[in-house]
Write a protein that binds this DNA or RNA. Sequence first.
DNA 1: GGTCGAATAT
DNA 2: GATATTCGAC
Length: 510
Amino acid sequence: MDEEDGRCESVLESRMLSVDIHILLVDDDATSLAVVSAMLRLCKYQVVTRRSPIEALDTLRAKKGFFDLVVTDLHMPQMNGLQLQKQVTKEFKLPVIMMSADEKPSVILKSLEEGVSFYMVKPISLDDVKQVWQYAITPKQTRTLIRPQLSIDKPSKKEIIKLSKSERTKNKTKKAKETRVPQTSIAKRKAKVVWTNSLHNRFLQAIRLIGLDKAVPKKILEFMNVPGLTRENVASHLQKYRIFLKRVAEKGACNSMKIYSDCTLLRSSFASSHFQFQSPLYTPKFQSQHPYLLEEQQLMAPLNYPSPLLGANYISHPNPNLEIENSLTHLENQSLLTLNKPNFPFNGLVSSSTRTDQNFVSIENENPNGGLRLNNNGVSNHVQATHDHNNGGFCGNFEGTNQVLQNKNVEENGVVLVSSKEGNDTIAFGDQIGEHQNCFDVLSEIFMGHNHHNQTSLRREEMVDMELSHMWNGIEMEASSKQDLQPSTLSAQGWDDDMLRTFLGDASFS
DNA sequence: GGTCGAATAT
DNA sequence: GATATTCGAC
């Protein structure tokens, strides 16, 4: 249907993209829809288009948690953009960008007052589109009538820098730290970068790829490969991130958070070195053992791709309807626990036990019914899951071996992690932004405050005084309760305290 | 001159 | 509290 077409189309493109913002674009005018859609895609967004607000809402409901942002026309029959925005805000808490040819201040103001994140006057410029990512899944921000002077495109960046630099040097030459010339109204601060989950995850992954010790702003920026993001942005974020690391390292996490009453967690293996927080996949040792994994590392793989670091050979088919295979090289006995992200659409881990060298996995789409289970002791695994539009996801859980199902309408591909512990491999699938998360990531998100959007509703207060196991379960249940009436817990998936302890306390990563 | 990162401003 | 900006150091 329309939905499929849109999705397949966008998937096809998204395979090539590096930015993982999912936008639902709504406009009753076909031409406008096509043009804006093309522009968005040009700017590396992933776009799904709908011709009416009703369809848009249906899509949002069907793909809860998938979209980061809604961009809608204002004037539409049945339901106008503002009404749609209201519903979207109420039901999905997603930011909405309004676009319209109507540039009457009263209209713009009204829209912004109603809660629209950003108002773009048609015809939309590329500059407008380039800014769109700033609004994706940001918690209700201050809305600005004036378009923020984001320096995400080269020319305007230069202009801005030129301006501010001349001012700066002017001030600086006087220097001697005289009271700075008060910022005039002209001297505008750059629009704040909102570190969304996806941006933060990208940041984390960049650091993993680089290695914490070598991760400096410039390098992180390179690896993140996010257009518009500046070194300063990254530097600022890195500073904060390091503060977080320090806090954790200084046992702050252990005591103040009471994550685990006996402090098994976070202390024994984490306190002494930050690196131990990191996935063994990214340790120098591991990398030296698997040099082939490091070959294509110039930039982070675009999201939705398995990271090349993980040994996934991505075979891209030009036709998104075809199966996409990832071959995951068996990663020896890396002991690693992977927590699916709270808003993880697959809702659960896919675990398999295999002793073979190869796992072929192709899993797509959200799974409202809990994770997949595979228990294979034998040859390679071919897992292909079906996207069932009626159920909105996988068809149930699999127990057994070599389940092969038809796979159509491939939408996302998120094989991200393999761990092996006593013969049990754990394959976790990334969320729609293609990230994997371990405990550390989750903690960092919580600390860094990036986990408060969308389905992720574990709040800081909730985790204080909460036992870790409960915390994990909380996350798990939180995630699953959205789509699954029978929440599965981590322990139900074999994530008992012993495992957590093993991972966090005893597992030696180096 | 570019970059880092701690300090500071917003 | 989060992010931007400043500024001394390298």
